[in-house]
């Protein structure tokens, strides 16, 4: 069985699993890291959104063999540790402030997508627009979309 090493939420992990198993299942079924959710398995719903080297990606669409020891994966469980101090990430705080979550199933992915969006927009040196928010593809079947928009704007202030 091939062995794969990468960084996960600040720690180096090694797993023995077939090359083509998508990272989502390595996280959930092998490592027991269940924050990233399954909603489609085909890179559509974005419930599994996590970060690779600080950018958003969908682990349901990446085989574990495609990443190496230098790649750093951050899931929702590790997001708070990417900012200084013991507190939650400002985007998580904004989610609490606006009481965004309903069932909560989509929200780990929503938050990870939101953080990456704010980083991207900031790198372009501009403010978040309605078009930026419209471009988010994450499904929320509970329909929390308007609160997500509000929370992203508020979370961006704190980032």
């Amino acid at each position: 069985m091939p062995s794969h090493t990468f960084k996960l939420n600040g720690e180096t992990v090694t797993v023995d699993v077939e090359d083509d198993v998508r990272i989502l299942w390595v996280l959930r079924d092998v490592l027991g890291v269940t924050g990233p959710k399954y909603g489609c398995g085909i890179n559509v719903c974005k419930a599994c959104t996590s970060h690779i080297n600080g950018k958003a990606f969908n682990p349901c669409a990446v085989p574990v063999a495609a990443i190496g020891p230098d790649d750093e994966i951050t899931t929702i469980e590790g997001l708070a540790d990417t900012t200084p101090g013991d507190d939650l990430h400002p985007m998580q705080e904004a989610w609490l402030e606006y009481d965004v979550a309903q069932c909560g199933y989509c929200q780990p992915g929503q938050i990870m997508a939101a953080v990456a969006l704010v980083d991207r927009v900031r790198a372009e040196n501009r403010a978040i627009t309605e078009d930026d928010l419209d471009s988010i593809r994450n499904v929320c079947r509970c329909g929390t979309y308007p609160r997500i928009r509000e929370a992203i704007r508020a979370g961006a202030q704190g980032m």
Binding site: R28, G32, T34, G35, P36, K37, Y38, T75, I76, E77, A80, L88, Q92, W95, L96, D99, V100, A101, G104, Y105, Q107, P108, I111
Partner: peptide
């Protein structure tokens, strides 16, 4: 009042059936 499970939801700790071990 904000939801009692909000913190679990935003930190990935909230468990659904497929998250049970």
């Amino acid at each position: 009042q904000r939801r009692v499970d909000a913190r679990d939801a935003v930190t990935g700790r909230k468990q659904f059936a497929m998250d049970l071990d």
